[in-house]
Simulated assay, not measured.
Amino acid sequence: MIHRFENLTTGVSQIYKSIQRIKKHEMSSFGLKGTHVMCLYFLGSHPDGLTAADLCNLCKEDKAGISRIMSDLEEHGFISYDHTQDKKRYRAKAYLTGIGKKQASKVTDLILHATIEGGKGITEEERAVFYRVLFLISDNLVQVCNELESEYSSSLLET
């Protein structure tokens, strides 16, 4: 049983590290960091714009991290904001500029290439099973985390 844990954690860790290396390598040529990849990707996928809160949910990043990323993207001229509906930047929708759309297109190409290369030798059936199992494990571990946090909160209240 413990070997399953080792296999899962080392496998996921290696995949994550490889993805981070690919992001870092490719983004440095744009003057950006790997953390910018998913924001550019999601903004490119949503031409109607996204708020920082939207990006937090989509990228699974915290508010501070998304704020830094969006500041960098704005500084590089990749995004602009629509302040007509809300004056606060966090609630204002961000849109890709012309140069931002070009970078987002390059990011999408990078993602497609990595996805194709990473999935070589895997049948569609194997891929479907892999993702079903991966998200089942993810959901189960989120439940474990929620239970641990609930127990921890309860123990704090008792003291």
Rank of each mutant, 00 (worst) to 15 (best):
I122L: 11
R89C: 10
L43A: 00
S18N: 10
K17T: 09
L73N: 03
G119V: 03
Y131I: 05
S29E: 14
R21D: 14
I137R: 05
D139L: 09
C59F: 07
S13F: 11
L148I: 11
S28W: 03
Q143T: 14
D109M: 11
L50S: 05
K23M: 10
K63C: 05
A114C: 10
K23L: 05
Q20D: 13
E126L: 01
Q20H: 12
Y90Q: 13
F78S: 08
A92S: 13
C59Q: 05
V142Q: 11
S105A: 13
K102L: 14
N57P: 00
G98S: 11
Q20E: 14
A104K: 06
K93V: 03
I137H: 08
L141Q: 12
V12P: 00
G98M: 04
G44M: 03
K60C: 12
L96Y: 00
I19R: 05
E149K: 09
T51W: 04
L136G: 07
A104D: 03
E147F: 11
K88A: 15
L73M: 05
S71W: 09
A53D: 08
A114R: 04
I69V: 06
E149R: 08
V133L: 12
G119T: 07
A94T: 00
S138K: 13
L141C: 10
C145D: 14
A52G: 02
Y131P: 02
K23V: 00
S105K: 13
G34I: 08
G65R: 07
I137K: 04
E61H: 11
Q143K: 13
D109F: 06
H83V: 11
V12R: 06
Q143E: 15
L136Y: 12
A104R: 02
R68H: 06
G119H: 03
R91Q: 13
H76S: 10
H46E: 04
S45R: 14
D62C: 10
E149A: 01
K60D: 15
C145K: 14
A92K: 06
H46T: 06
I122C: 02
Q14A: 09
G100S: 03
G121S: 01
G100M: 02
E126R: 01
T51V: 07
V133H: 09
H25A: 09
C145R: 15
K120P: 01
N140K: 15
Y41I: 01
V142S: 04
K102D: 15
R127G: 02
S18L: 07
A104E: 05
K33G: 04
G34P: 06
I116R: 13
T115V: 09
E75C: 09
C59L: 07
S138E: 12
A104V: 01
